[in-house]
Simulated assay, not measured.
Amino acid sequence: METRRYTTKQIEQAAADLKAGKLVAFPTETVYGLGADATNPEAVKQVYAAKGRPSDNPLIVHVAKISTVEHYAAGVSQQFKRLVDAFWPGSLTIILPLKHAAFDTVVTGGLKTAAFRMPNNAATLALIEAAGVPLVGPSANTSGKPSPTLADHVLHDLNGKIAGVIDDGPTGVGLESTVIDLSVATPVILRPGVVTQEAIERVIGPIRTNQHRVSATEIPKAPGMKYKHYAPNAQVYIVPSATDFKAAISWASQQNVPFGLMAVDQVLTQQSAVRFKDQFSLGNSVTSASQHLFEGLRYFDLNPEIKIILVQGFEKLGVGLAYMNRLEKAAGQQYFTSK
């Protein structure tokens, strides 16, 4: 199969592929998603096969209209309506209880809930409208690898496995959406993102954050809760703060393997006299670091010589919580420590 690179002016052609049961990757403001008709179980099964994704990992349903959610959900609450008014289209995914048999179990992982999102990308909203159906859309990458923030990343992983990808340039946010569960008595954030707990609580009042670790036999309610994610080929070590880089570099130098650095510009400038194999700039703040985290991990994946990547950590506040959530999974919780 030849994977086509669609422009944003070729939405109708991409929608025709989706209607035919094929897979098309689409851009969002967060990362690129791998689209399939959410009402076509055979098409959805292809998503799992193309990604190598475990089939008990539920999929987010992408919509272009609130009425689509109301069609499938078993009622929507005032909390849902307030969140939609505040954050849609945008980087917030909302889990709701479903009407009986609203979606096939291949979409829901066998749960009685589904996660819904309206992405903030004009091309993808037009694609959903043209296809006439909601689209599942997990990240368009090989399962477990860094999420794609460019169409080139999609093609690197999935070329020949999907019908096409709509190229709309780099994504703006760079981290997957916040996931909040409204199917429980007290809403709970299951995956942090750029829509923070503080921002949500200003809209609907107190909520909880997930502290539960999903067991090997348990079905997760949201993506990214159970399996190792975002990992490049090299071992990632989190450097807790900018002041720890000197010691971390000294340690890495003694491992007798090529290593690289991912940090903000100020840190990279301070280490310019140190010998290391390669570097990737995370910009100048935790916000820019979040936008470029996956891009940096993929950058080093293209250099198989690199065996260790030292990546700057940030305080777990605001967007830093989402950044560290992804980075800890990429590193397998491995931190550099001088002790």
Rank of each mutant, 00 (worst) to 15 (best):
residue 42 E to R: 14
residue 136 V to A: 06
residue 109 G to M: 10
residue 297 L to S: 04
residue 288 S to K: 14
residue 193 G to A: 02
residue 138 P to K: 06
residue 7 T to Y: 04
residue 164 G to R: 03
residue 316 K to Y: 12
residue 120 N to T: 01
residue 242 A to T: 13
residue 68 T to N: 01
residue 63 V to H: 02
residue 171 T to A: 06
residue 282 L to A: 13
residue 252 A to C: 11
residue 339 K to Y: 12
residue 289 A to H: 09
residue 295 E to Q: 15
residue 334 Q to E: 11
residue 115 A to M: 02
residue 180 I to C: 08
residue 140 A to T: 01
residue 24 V to M: 07
residue 30 T to V: 09
residue 215 S to N: 10
residue 121 N to G: 03
residue 100 H to A: 12
residue 212 H to I: 03
residue 81 K to M: 13
residue 283 G to T: 10
residue 33 G to E: 13
residue 71 H to C: 02
residue 157 D to I: 08
residue 123 A to C: 09
residue 129 E to F: 04
residue 101 A to I: 01
residue 83 L to S: 09
residue 246 K to H: 12
residue 114 A to H: 06
residue 214 V to E: 02
residue 120 N to P: 02
residue 129 E to R: 12
residue 67 S to K: 10
residue 316 K to C: 14
residue 76 V to R: 05
residue 164 G to D: 05
residue 37 D to Q: 14
residue 244 D to V: 07
residue 173 V to K: 03
residue 301 D to Q: 14
residue 216 A to Y: 04
residue 179 V to Q: 08
residue 295 E to M: 14
residue 167 D to A: 03
residue 130 A to Q: 10
residue 124 T to P: 05
residue 78 Q to T: 09
residue 11 I to W: 03
residue 132 G to F: 08
residue 280 F to Q: 07
residue 259 F to Q: 12
residue 284 N to W: 03
residue 289 A to D: 07
residue 289 A to R: 06
residue 316 K to I: 09
residue 22 K to C: 00
residue 19 K to L: 01
residue 144 G to Y: 06
residue 87 F to M: 06
residue 259 F to E: 11
residue 243 T to E: 15
residue 7 T to A: 06
residue 282 L to I: 11
residue 125 L to A: 04
residue 184 V to N: 07
residue 72 Y to H: 11
residue 146 P to E: 09
residue 315 E to I: 15
residue 252 A to D: 12
residue 77 S to L: 03
residue 126 A to P: 08
residue 163 A to G: 01
residue 45 K to P: 05
residue 182 L to G: 14
residue 115 A to P: 02
residue 199 A to K: 08
residue 104 D to Q: 02
residue 167 D to H: 04
residue 243 T to N: 14
residue 68 T to C: 02
residue 95 I to T: 06
residue 242 A to C: 13
residue 95 I to W: 05
residue 44 V to L: 14
residue 140 A to V: 02
residue 61 V to G: 03
residue 42 E to C: 07
residue 160 G to N: 08
residue 247 A to Y: 08
residue 107 V to R: 06
residue 108 T to K: 06
residue 75 G to E: 12
residue 261 L to S: 07
residue 156 H to L: 12
residue 186 T to G: 07
residue 128 I to N: 10
residue 41 P to F: 11
residue 166 I to T: 02
residue 16 A to F: 00
residue 202 R to C: 01
residue 129 E to H: 07
residue 166 I to P: 00
residue 56 D to L: 12
residue 261 L to I: 15
residue 317 L to R: 15
residue 243 T to H: 14
residue 152 D to C: 01
residue 88 W to H: 09
residue 303 N to V: 14
residue 184 V to P: 01
residue 265 D to Y: 12
residue 246 K to P: 00
residue 221 K to A: 11
residue 209 T to K: 04
residue 104 D to W: 01
residue 332 G to H: 13
residue 157 D to S: 08
residue 92 L to M: 06
residue 237 Y to P: 01
residue 275 R to I: 07
residue 119 P to D: 05
residue 74 A to P: 03
residue 306 I to D: 12
residue 184 V to C: 14
residue 11 I to A: 03
residue 332 G to R: 13
residue 80 F to I: 08
residue 188 V to N: 04
residue 276 F to E: 04
residue 321 L to E: 15
residue 7 T to E: 07
residue 166 I to C: 02
residue 314 F to C: 13
residue 222 A to P: 08
residue 55 S to T: 14
residue 51 K to L: 05
residue 176 E to G: 02
residue 140 A to C: 05
residue 225 M to T: 07
residue 317 L to N: 15
residue 162 I to S: 07
residue 275 R to G: 10
residue 266 Q to M: 10
residue 156 H to T: 12
residue 227 Y to I: 00
residue 21 G to N: 00
residue 201 E to N: 00
residue 52 G to I: 08
